[in-house]
Design a protein around this nucleic acid. Structure first.
Lengths: 146, 146
DNA sequence: GCATATTACATTGATATCAATATAATTTCG
DNA sequence: CGAAATTATATTGATATCAATGTAATATGC
């Protein structure tokens, strides 16, 4: 009878209960679903909302700092921008000061859609806030990771 | 001059600093990269590791409880299983007690690969543990989300 | 100034994620 | 028992994620 698992079941229990990566991935999926659902009326995902919010600045931004703010691979950002660009929500233009670089900004339509999304975010976040104990503590703990 | 943003920049700053969804997504990406890097020698992603660990049980499991444990859509689980199945790491078999259902388990090769991955998880997690203040508190806060 | 290193971004391919939808099997209830 | 509701899973299509790789432009060091 050599069909015993090389990894004891107790280890499985331990990892299930202690793996921070697993816990964060689960929370990420749950929160993504929550905000995706809420933002559906404006046809934005939580990712698209965060990205567009990151582009809502007084002047256009290059891609690098945006990718860093979102802790997102630059290639992921390229892909995400294409979708929003096709929908006429963001502008990707050449940077005259550095021709390797692109400058990102919202179109007027993008600004208007973002404005429509903000109250949804506020409401959804308020519900979440009431449900959780100490949101600011959690936020700070998460900041230590990324 | 009507090209002022409908969403004031101060709101952008506020969302950036307070949105729990954004913070969790960022942490999720960072941690995923950390564990994906570490697990590369055994050719597993953090997701695949968590999934295989969830299948490391005394007896085969149906898909539903696994999807729930991982807080993952059932269709995502179906897709993830296909990859591991093709690599000969997991078995998906019919459930004689309920013919709608599938029973999931690890192959011997899967068990062996998982056994090779566990020390990597332990080491990576230990490094993380030393870097963070209060891991158990963070875990508990995350549990309240998913 | 020029060769080399670095930086900023794009493309491709593989896996991940979920909504919408479909199918088949089981359960429930009248 | 049989129709309707529910449950468990699969498929498709769109977006998300990153590694590997490539390209072009800028910066660096001699």
């Amino acid at each position: 009878m050599s069909n015993e698992s090389p990894v004891p079941f107790s280890t499985t229990i331990y990892v299930r209960d202690h793996c921070l990566c697993l816990h964060v991935q689960r929370a990420a999926r749950s929160l993504a679903r929550l905000f995706d659902d809420a933002l559906r009326p404006v046809a934005l995902t939580n990712n698209q909302f965060s990205l567009m919010m990151a582009l809502n600045r007084p002047s256009p931004v290059p891609m690098k700092p945006v990718a860093e703010l979102l802790a997102m691979d630059q290639t992921t950002l390229t892909a995400a921008l294409k979708v929003l660009q096709k929908r006429g929500l963001v502008i990707v233009e050449a940077n005259p000061e550095d021709r390797r670089s692109r400058l990102l900004s919202l179109t007027v339509a993008g600004q208007e859609l973002l404005a429509a999304a903000v109250p949804i975010w506020t409401e959804t976040h308020a519900v979440l806030d009431r449900k959780l104990n100490d949101l600011s503590r959690l936020r700070q703990d998460l900041l230590a990771i990324s």
